[in-house]
Structures are given as structure tokens and as C-alpha cells.
């Protein structure tokens, strides 16, 4: 069983996202350590891309800030090697196909594995296009994380059957970002997954408050929070670590109550 899947075994999981290099790589290292310390079960590390088409304004801003710092895949690998000395929770890259493809898919995943990564999420690579990426992940022992969306319907069984690590359940239509309410039928989506696999399901997109996290964690195996954390980082900049840690601790507590 992969380390990612194991992270869901004990109890409901809390998955945190941040963009590497926002506001700079040193702060990212502090943030990753603080988030792990505060109880996150998996951490998603965003590698910035110039044109993140699945992101709302908050994470778009983080991508731009990181790129203006000159952050590259190379520098993110170095960051991972550094944090891996003290952080032991599973780490998953979240980026766009071209970042991996232009580096050389095989070389990217080999380097990622050596640095200590556990998985890869590419929001612009659906089931039909995953073969090359998933095969390279497999060769280097990473999980290629699949996404399902409220529009997926009959596709869910097909996607879930081949899913590795966890299934990223996109809670709502549209792009990433904080939402007032989540109206999709999450129970129905999770049900369709359960019919074909025991791979855990984590719900993301739009979750920011403890109440939302608790509700979603009751429906699934974990929750993913991105924009709300990135917003805190944007607000507090280089001093964000304690604020983010406090937020993650509180969110993890409510997620645990959702058993």
C-alpha cells in the first residue's frame, strides 16, 4: 500500500495545499514543516505555472508571485530535498502537464521520486491522457492521483477503477477558490466510487470553513484545502507560518470530529 493511501487509514485526512515559492522558497520550507507539524496528513505542493487554467484568482496570484521569484521545477526539487529531512507526511506535486512534459516526463518523475515525493496531480490531464504520466509515476513509485467532478457521472467508475493513492473529488463546477456553499451531490459521487474501489476519496475546491470541512469529511475520507491557505500566505507573507499552522490545526480538529 502506498504511503498516500496509508495516510487515510487511521482517520479522516486533512490535505493542505500551498504554491512553492510563494512568497519565496525559504518561507515555503517553513510553511511545509509547520503544516506537517500542525497535523496535515498529506501536503500538496504546487509547482507554479504561467497559465494555471484550473485555478481561481487566489491561486493564480500565488503562481504569479512564485514565478516572479524565479521558481523553477529544479528549485522546487531542491526545496523538497531540504524539507524531506524533517517532514515525513506524504507529499504530492500539483502542477500542469507542460511543467512535467517540458522537463521530460521520465526525468521529472525520477527526480521527484529521488527527492522524496509520493504522488502527482495534473488537473489538465484527464483519464484519456494519463497513460504516459501514470506509467512514469508507476516506474518511480509515485501515485498518479485522479480527479472526479460533478459532471463526471458514468465516468466515475472507469476513473475510480484505475485510481491510485486517493481520488480527488472536485466539489463544484468552476475553478479553485473559496465558495459560500457546496451544492453538488458529494454523497452520490462517493457512492459511485465505493461501488468499484476502496481507494479513499478526498473532497476539494471551495472548502475554507471548519463547518464545510466537517460536512465534507462526513461524506468522504478527507478534505483538501488550498485557496484558504494561500490567502493566509498572501496576507502574512514571510510571517505566515504560525497563522497557517493555527488554521491547519483547527481544520484538522474539525475533520477528526467527522468520524
Amino acid at each position: 500500500m502506498s504511503d498516500i493511501k496509508k495516510a487515510f487509514e487511521k482517520n479522516k485526512a486533512f490535505i493542505a495545499f500551498l504554491t512553492c515559492g510563494d512568497p519565496d522558497l525559504e518561507t515555503s520550507a517553513q510553511l511545509i514543516a509547520a503544516i506537517a507539524e500542525a497535523g496535515a496528513d498529506v501536503i500538496e505542493l504546487g509547482i507554479p505555472f504561467s497559465d494555471p487554467t484550473a485555478e481561481g484568482p487566489v491561486i493564480q496570484g500565488a503562481n504569479l508571485r512564485a514565478l516572479s521569484q524565479g521558481v523553477t521545477a529544479e528549485k522546487v526539487f531542491a526545496l523538497v530535498r531540504t524539507v524531506r529531512q524533517t517532514v515525513f507526511v506524504p507529499l504530492v506535486f500539483m502542477t500542469y502537464a507542460n511543467v512535467v512534459f517540458s522537463y521530460g516526463t521520465e526525468r521529472f518523475l525520477k527526480t521527484a521520486a529521488e527527492a522524496g515525493m509520493d504522488g502527482l496531480i495534473l488537473p489538465d490531464v484527464p483519464f484519456e491522457e494519463k497513460a504516459d504520466f501514470a506509467a512514469a509515476c508507476k516506474r518511480h513509485g509515485l501515485d498518479f492521483i485522479s480527479l472526479i467532478a460533478p459532471t463526471s457521472k458514468a465516468r466515475i467508475a472507469m476513473i475510480a477503477q484505475e485510481a491510485e493513492g486517493f481520488i480527488y473529488c472536485v466539489s463544484s463546477l468552476g475553478v479553485t477558490g473559496v465558495r459560500g456553499e457546496i451544492t453538488s451531490n458529494i454523497d452520490g459521487m462517493v457512492q459511485l466510487v465505493r461501488e468499484v474501489t476502496d481507494t479513499p476519496v478526498a473532497v476539494g475546491f471551495g472548502i475554507s470553513t471548519p463547518e464545510q470541512a466537517k460536512t465534507m469529511a462526513q461524506k468522504a475520507d478527507g478534505v483538501i484545502v488550498g485557496s484558504a491557505i494561500v490567502k493566509l500566505i498572501a496576507e502574512h507573507g514571510k510571517n505566515a507560518a504560525p497563522y497557517v499552522a493555527e488554521y491547519v490545526r483547527a481544520m484538522k480538529q474539525t475533520v477528526l470530529q467527522a468520524e
Partner: peptide, 10 residues
């Protein structure tokens, strides 16, 4: 190919 978010696949 079809490099788009899952939301748009259907």
C-alpha cells in the same frame, strides 16, 4: 489530444 479538466470531459 484532450488535455482539459475532468469537469469538461463529458
Amino acid at each position: 489530444g484532450q488535455y482539459i479538466p475532468e469537469t469538461l470531459m463529458n
